[in-house]
Lab assay of single mutants.
Amino acid sequence: QNEKLANELKSLLDELNVNELATGSLNTYYKRTIKISGQKAMYALKSKDFKKMSEAKYQLQKIYNEIDEA
């Protein structure tokens, strides 16, 4: 289960640069939040902690959705 979550989180991290570029014309909230979420996700992957990875995955998905809707 950890392996599956780690792969999903890696996949979301692969999209980080594209989504970060998409924040160029948006409010600074999005820029700041996506950077923080990305850092948390990288830390969670290194720690291999299921709870941290779950939270990081949720945060990344949430900010990606917010950027898409903005």
Results as ranks from 00 to 15, higher is better:
Lys35Phe: 09
Glu55Ile: 10
Glu3Leu: 08
Ser25Pro: 11
Gly24Trp: 09
Lys4Trp: 08
Ser54Leu: 14
Ala6Ile: 12
Lys57Cys: 10
Leu5Cys: 15
Ser47Cys: 09
Ala6Met: 11
Glu66Cys: 11
Met53Asp: 00
Glu3Gln: 10
Gln1Asn: 09
Ile63Lys: 01
Asp14Cys: 12
Thr23Phe: 06
Lys62Tyr: 03
Glu20Gly: 06
Leu13Asp: 00
Lys31Thr: 04
Gln39Pro: 01
Ile67Pro: 01
Thr33Asn: 09
Glu3Trp: 07
Tyr30Gln: 05
Ser37Ile: 15
Asn2Gly: 08
Lys35Val: 08
Asn17Ser: 15
Asp14His: 07
Ala56Glu: 01
Thr33Lys: 13
Gln39Arg: 13
Leu5Ala: 02
Tyr58Trp: 10
Lys62Gln: 10
Gln61Gly: 04
Lys48Thr: 03
Glu69Arg: 12
Asn2Ile: 15
Glu15Gly: 06
Glu15Pro: 01
Leu12Ser: 01
Ala56Cys: 04
Gln39Leu: 12
Lys35Arg: 11
Val18Met: 13
Ser54Tyr: 09
Ala44Gln: 01
Leu12Arg: 01
Ile63Met: 03
Leu60Glu: 00
Tyr43Cys: 13
Tyr58Met: 10
Lys31Phe: 07
Ile36Trp: 12
Asn7Cys: 14
Asn19His: 15
Asp68Thr: 14
Leu21Phe: 07
Lys62Pro: 01
Glu66Asn: 04
Asn2Asp: 08
Leu21Ile: 12
Ser37Lys: 08
Asp14Pro: 00
Thr28Cys: 15
Ala56Ile: 03
Gly38Met: 15
Tyr43Gln: 15
Ile67Tyr: 03
Val18Glu: 13
Thr23Cys: 10
Gly38Thr: 12
Ala44Cys: 04
Leu16His: 02
Ser37Ala: 15
Tyr64Val: 07
Thr28Ala: 13
Tyr64Leu: 14
Phe50Glu: 06
Gly38His: 09
Tyr29Met: 03
Phe50Ile: 08
Glu20Phe: 14
Glu3Ser: 07
Leu13Phe: 02
Asn2Glu: 14
Leu13His: 01
Ile34Cys: 05
Asn17Ile: 13
Gly24Tyr: 11
Leu5Glu: 02
Glu15Val: 13
Ala22Asp: 04
Met42Pro: 00
Asp68Met: 15
Thr28Asp: 14
Arg32His: 14
Tyr64Arg: 07
Thr33Ile: 13
Lys48Gln: 10
Lys31Gln: 13
Glu8Leu: 05
Lys10Asn: 05
Ser47Ile: 10
Glu15Arg: 14
Lys57Tyr: 14
Glu15Ser: 11
Gly24Leu: 15
Tyr29Ser: 04
Ala6Gln: 10
Tyr64Trp: 06
Ser54Pro: 02
Lys48Gly: 14
Gln61Trp: 05
Leu45Thr: 01
Lys46Met: 12
Lys31Glu: 05
Lys57Thr: 05
Leu60Pro: 00
Glu3Met: 08
Asn17Val: 13
Ile36Pro: 01
Glu69Tyr: 11
Val18Asn: 11
Ala70Arg: 06
Tyr64Asp: 00
Asn7Ala: 14
Lys40Ile: 11
Lys48Ile: 03
Lys52Pro: 01
Lys48Val: 03
Gly24Thr: 12
Lys35Ala: 08
Leu16Tyr: 14
Ile67Met: 04
Leu21Asn: 06
Lys62Gly: 03
Leu26Cys: 09
Ala41Lys: 00
Leu9Phe: 01
Thr23Tyr: 04
Met53Trp: 01
